[in-house]
Every structure is written in structure tokens, then in C-alpha cells.
Computed example of a mutant assay.
Amino acid sequence: MISISIIEDHDYYRASLVNAIKENDSFQIKGIYATAEEAIECLPGNTPDIVIVDIKLKNKSGIDVILETRNNHLNTQFLMCTGFQNDEKIFSALKAGAAGYIIKGSTTAEIHDALIDLYEGGSPMSPFIARKVIGLLQNKDACNKKVDLGLSVRELEVLSLLSKGLLYKEISDQLFISPNTVKNHCKNIYRRLHVQNKIEALNKFKEYNYN
């Protein structure tokens, strides 16, 4: 049996969710909360398999619920509930740790399907949101592909500031070192990267995803 808690501040929709879940004998309701604050306080003693969370609650949001409870509920999955398919907050909720979402106005059958899908390892979401999630993962993967250029931390700092268009004097002011020291760092950078000038150094810097 799949245990479910509900966090929804709209009385009518909260009652509708309860009724929809009760129609399936595979589900058991463990908790019903009208506010994020109430849920955050009560969930530690009542850990369900799935929590259906309204994204837009009155004070703290559904995203706040995830952020404040997920570390204590490692086996609980969060299914967001929203009124709009392409709500930007859905993406924020997924980044915070939600595993999927349902749309307000979904049929009873669609709610059941989403809960079962989630419980069995799926992530119910639209192609639009799925594409954004894939984009996020691809960006993280690109960041992880940074190649060790053989530079010191200070040399990387200097090269990073050069890539932003700063002059030697501006870099020296920002790093609290002398302009002459900045110049020496640049010479070492060119030697280590086997390049002849700043442009070639910056091209290599960008080539290996350090920009």
C-alpha cells in the first residue's frame, strides 16, 4: 500500500484530492495539511511514501517544504501540484528535490497514474519541463568536464579576471597584489599553457569550459 500525505491550502481542492485518493485501495492517506508550516512540523513523525504538495501556499511555499524536510525524509518522494503546466516554479521545485508534478484539474485516473508512476520510479512531468531538466543536467555535465590546465589557483583567478576584460591594474586591485605580480602570473600562464599571448590563453581557457 502506498502511503500519501497532502499539503494544500485550498479547502475545496484539498477535499477533492482526498476523495480521489480514497477511491483507490492501493493508497493510504497518512496526513492532510493546510499549510507548509503545519506539514513541516508534523511530517517528521509521519513519514509517507509520497507527499502531494501545492507549489503556491500562503506563506511558505511547497518548495520550502521540500528544502526543510527532504534531509529527514530520504525515502519520501514529493509530487508537486500546480495550476499551470509550464509554471517556472515547477522547474525550481524539481531542482529542490521534487520528483514530478500533477496539474490541478487532473482527473482521478490521472492522479492515480501519477502516484503509481512516481512510486515505481517514474517522474511524471510534461515534455517542456523534462527538456529543461535535461538542459540543466547537460550544463552540469559540461562544468564537470573542466580539464586540469596545470595552473595554480592564483593563476586561474588571474586568467578568469582576464577573460572578463579586466586590465592588469584592475586585477591587482581585486586580488590585492601588485601589477607587476599580475604580469609575472600571466607570463607563467602563457608558459604553462604553451601559448604566446593573452588571446591564445583565453581561447584555451574557454575551450576547456572555464568561461
Results as ranks from 00 to 15, higher is better:
I2R: 01
I7N: 00
H10E: 11
R14I: 03
S16E: 13
L17S: 07
L17G: 05
V18H: 11
E23H: 06
N24Y: 10
F27C: 03
I29Y: 01
K30F: 07
K30A: 06
I40L: 05
L43N: 00
N46P: 00
I50D: 00
I50H: 02
V51E: 00
V51T: 04
I52N: 01
I55E: 04
I55W: 04
K56H: 15
K60D: 04
G62F: 01
D64L: 00
I66T: 08
I66S: 04
E68S: 09
L74F: 08
L74Q: 14
T76S: 02
M80Q: 05
T82A: 07
F84Q: 14
E88C: 13
F91G: 03
F91V: 07
S92W: 05
G97W: 08
A98V: 02
A99V: 02
I103G: 01
I103P: 00
S106P: 04
T107S: 15
T108I: 12
T108P: 06
E110C: 04
D113L: 00
A114C: 01
A114N: 01
D117Y: 06
L118Y: 03
Y119Q: 00
S123F: 13
P124S: 02
S126W: 10
P127G: 08
P127Q: 09
F128T: 15
A130K: 09
K132N: 11
V133W: 06
I134D: 14
K140T: 08
D141Q: 07
A142V: 15
L151G: 04
E155T: 05
L156P: 00
L156A: 04
L159Y: 03
L161H: 09
L161E: 07
L162S: 02
L162C: 07
L162K: 11
L166K: 14
L166P: 04
Y168L: 10
K169H: 11
D173H: 09
D173S: 12
D173C: 11
F176A: 14
I177G: 09
I177D: 14
S178L: 10
P179L: 08
T181N: 14
T181F: 08
V182Q: 13
V182H: 08
N188M: 14
N188C: 12
N188Q: 15
I189G: 10
Y190E: 10
Y190H: 13
R191G: 07
R191S: 15
H194K: 15
Q196M: 14
K198I: 10
I199W: 05
I199F: 11
L202N: 09
N203E: 15
N203D: 15
K204F: 01
K206M: 09
K206A: 12
Y210T: 09
N211G: 07
N211A: 09
